[in-house]
């Protein structure tokens, strides 16, 4: 099981984000997430600056697994990054 820290930038309404959360939970993997659409003002801006560094397109979900950045719910890539 992966010990890498996992961070997920997501939207509360997005189907691919929901699939990603479900997949990680089903694999009993602990992850941190932030639903960017629920943030406002400076907080949103600060998080978006972070997202842009990982993914210039600033699309969701953006998944950070250790040093690997995965844009979109790409199950195979996520599994590989997690060593599953």
């Amino acid at each position: 099981m992966s010990e890498k820290p996992i961070k997920l930038y997501s939207l509360s309404t997005c189907s691919h984000c929901k699939s990603t959360k479900k997949f990680l939970s089903d694999c009993t993997i602990l992850y941190e997430f932030v639903d960017v659409d629920l943030l406002e003002g400076e907080e949103r801006q600060a998080i978006l600056e972070d997202v842009k560094k990982f993914n210039p397109k600033c699309s969701f979900p953006t998944i950070i697994i250790g040093d690997t950045v995965i844009v979109g719910f790409k199950e195979e890539e996520i599994k590989e990054a997690l060593g599953l």
Binding site: T13, C14, S15, V36, S59, F60
Partner: peptide, 25 residues
């Protein structure tokens, strides 16, 4: 999945006043 997305569109209509894509910010 379609119903989830349509519910999200309705939610966005309530939030923003228009049915904006649920998969984009």
């Amino acid at each position: 999945r379609v119903f989830e997305l349509l519910e999200a569109l309705i939610k966005n209509k309530d939030r923003y006043g228009y049915m904006v894509c649920p998969c984009r910010l």
